[in-house]
Amino acid sequence: MERLFNEFEKLTRIASPSGHERALLEYIKKECEPYCDSVYFDKRGNLVCRKKNEGAKKLLLAAHADELGILAMYAEEEGNYRFSVFGGVNFPSLLYRRVNFTNGVVGVIVPDDGTSLSDLKLANLSVDIGAKSKKQAEKLLAPLTVGVSDSPAVKLGSRFVSRAIDDKVGCLILLELIRSVKSSKFDLYFCFTVEEELGLRGAKTVGFEIEPDIAIAIDVSSATDMIPIKRNGITLGSGAAIKVLDVGTVCDKELNAELISVAKKAKRRYQLDVADRGCTDAAALQFVKGGVKATVVSVATRYIHTPNEQADLNDVSDVIAVIKGYIEG
């Protein structure tokens, strides 16, 4: 568990808001190269790592490299920056959040004076970077610089909190599989996709090029065990969440049955995930060319799209074991 957490923490050191994933992907590329037959970027900037098994069915595993973040847009006369966001956030969660820009500048997101909580929107929020004027602000921070929440990974027993568990935990799982899978009944393509948070804008091209037989997205899915518990759903520590359906995908029944039988055989915990919100790269991958058998295996996660998401390392280890068992057969 300690090692898994440490590997995760390394991924969180690199900011990778949508459209700005390259630095993280270069790190992942270096880590993968010793274990793969080929590692390359496609035209869209998705990273593809292939473990060849020519003639076997093609299995595409996807985790998205992008995370939520903000983009400094326009400095006001007062020295505060107006900004835009990458990905879906609820505005109250932005309030008084500390942000690290990629050039080292730190800022705090604040509402315009007199803004009521119910009327929060981008137009009345800004980042205060401690500048006294527009001129000083632009000197400190060039427009179009990106930033992410200042909320580093912290381990809490078997659980951990961090920004961007969505979907750096998926990247971690793919990395662990790349390092540990010895034999495979599939021709394997591990894909680290871009711009998932902007509406699955990366996965489509990678699927088009690879033409997989099977696609599995590894992502986070909303846990429903927060207080007060309102409904039954997936919970932290209950194992790999195998998705039945979400807003974008009705997952392949046969594929899910195979994953479940692998989990049982490996004596790993799993839970079925029927999600009424969100979708993943599987939603884009299932449509590629003549269609692809697709599903999603997730790590149950609390407080998704906030600075402090929370998940359980036991679940991470279960997802790795289930997918590994499926690949090795």
């Binding site: 035209k43 091209t205 090029e209």
Partner: peptide
């Protein structure tokens, strides 16, 4: 100049994502 707000859209969104994609 560059846009100071995220606004508008054009053929780029289709060109970028279609088939093998493009920069």
């Amino acid at each position: 100049q560059t846009k100071t707000l995220v606004a508008g859209g054009n053929d780029a969104s289709a060109v970028q994502k279609t088939a093998y994609g493009a920069s």
